[in-house]
């Protein structure tokens, strides 16, 4: 196991180096001069040229790459061209927003997905099973940006139940400490805002969680069906509803492996989907951060933002692999 971990870690090195290089080169290839954008439409040509020089954008690419690359090792992610603030200082609030949203989405997906899967399997071929599985099929095929819009239209605009955008009630917002608002509001003892934050999480969390939810439900159902074919469950089943809870607990454990896998596989989709979800729900997360940086050619932000997301993604995949290896003895660490 230890050797396996080490091997997986070392195999990451070329991948990370390659990522840094590819992102760097790609960003340079984006047309448009950031100096022009910073100065805006009213700027004179001379001003643009002067700023280009000041930003070091007139240097050859290898010089720029080297200074970026060596900076990374010192924990220097670069300085945002737009805000003139070190990225390492300003990225956390965005990252925290995305983490909060992704966790909410995952929670919704896991809770609903696993339960729907178990119940579907238990009552195989019932109307519940059919409905759940049809919904799951639709869920897997869902364009989440459209789902988000429809949610807003029905739940927020027509019924006026939940807020459509943002993370909290702006008036009288709490001062962020960790930037995970659920925690911040509690640290301030502000239950009213805590409830607001939860309300704000529901719609985007649901939109983002839909696809993993559908996949988890389907996987749980099929693994559950396999479990149920075993004799002791059949016996349990014959004994009626009381046994449902016994089986429920038992299957939860069994469902763990596929669910861990799915969570691992879905993190990428989740991080990608976050960009779309954040656009629709005005969520100030890392997706918004990167997307806006692309529009304003904020090179350092684009490259460090993409790298950080990709890095998290790679890391989670690694963790999932290791976890998977740990819980499933059938996997050989060769």
């Amino acid at each position: 196991m230890f050797a396996y971990t080490i091997r997986r870690l070392t195999s990451l090195v070329p991948v990370l180096l390659g990522m840094i290089f590819i992102v760097f080169m790609m960003i340079r290839a984006i047309p448009g001069n950031p100096a022009q954008l910073i100065l805006g439409q009213q700027a004179t040509e001379r001003a643009v040229a002067a700023l280009t020089k000041e930003l070091g954008l007139d240097q050859p690419w290898y010089t720029q790459f080297w200074s970026y690359f060596s900076g990374l090792f010192k924990g220097d992610l670069g300085v945002s061209l737009k805000t003139n603030t070190p990225i390492s200082e300003e990225i956390w609030p965005y990252l925290a927003a995305t983490i909060e949203l992704s966790l909410a989405a995952m929670l919704i997906a896991v809770v609903i997905g696993i339960n729907a899967g178990i119940i579907s399997a238990w009552f195989q071929n019932s109307w519940f099973d059919y409905c759940a599985m049809v919904l799951a099929l639709i869920g897997v095929s869902m364009p989440i940006f459209w789902l988000g819009l429809m949610e807003q239209y029905i739940v927020a605009i027509q019924w006026d139940l939940l807020p459509t955008t943002g993370r909290d009630n702006i008036r009288d917002a709490v001062d962020p400490i960790t930037h995970l608002y659920l925690i911040d509001t509690l640290m301030h003892g502000r239950i009213d805002q805590f409830i607001e934050v939860i309300k704000h999480l529901i719609l985007p969390g649901f939109a983002l969680g839909t696809i993993p939810m559908a996949i988890i439900a389907r996987m749980t159902r099929s693994s559950m069906l396999e479990v149920m074919r075993s004799d002791y469950i059949r016996t349990a089943r014959a004994k009626g509803m009381k046994m449902f809870w016994v089986v429920y607990k038992h299957s939860l454990k069994n469902a763990l492996i596929p669910v861990v896998t799915v969570i691992g596989l879905q993190i990428g989709l989740l991080l990608g989907g976050a960009i779309l979800t954040e656009t629709i729900f005005g969520w100030p997360g890392i997706g918004t951060y990167i997307y806006e940086a692309i529009s304003s050619r904020d090179y350092p932000v684009i490259q460090s933002g993409i790298l950080i997301v990709a890095f998290i993604f790679v890391l989670i995949n690694l963790l999932v692999d290791l976890l998977y290896a740990a819980i499933d003895p059938r996997i050989k660490y060769k």
């Binding site: 991948v15 990522m19 992102v23 790609m26 960003i27 990428g268 989709l269 991080l271 990608g272 989907g273 960009i275 779309l276 990167i290 997307y291 692309i294 684009i302 993409i306 997301v309 990709a310 993604f313 790679v314």
Partner: peptide, 11 residues
Amino acid sequence: AFPSILLAIAV
């Protein structure tokens, strides 16, 4: 290693 939509946006 990149979330696919992010890579697509960059491209």
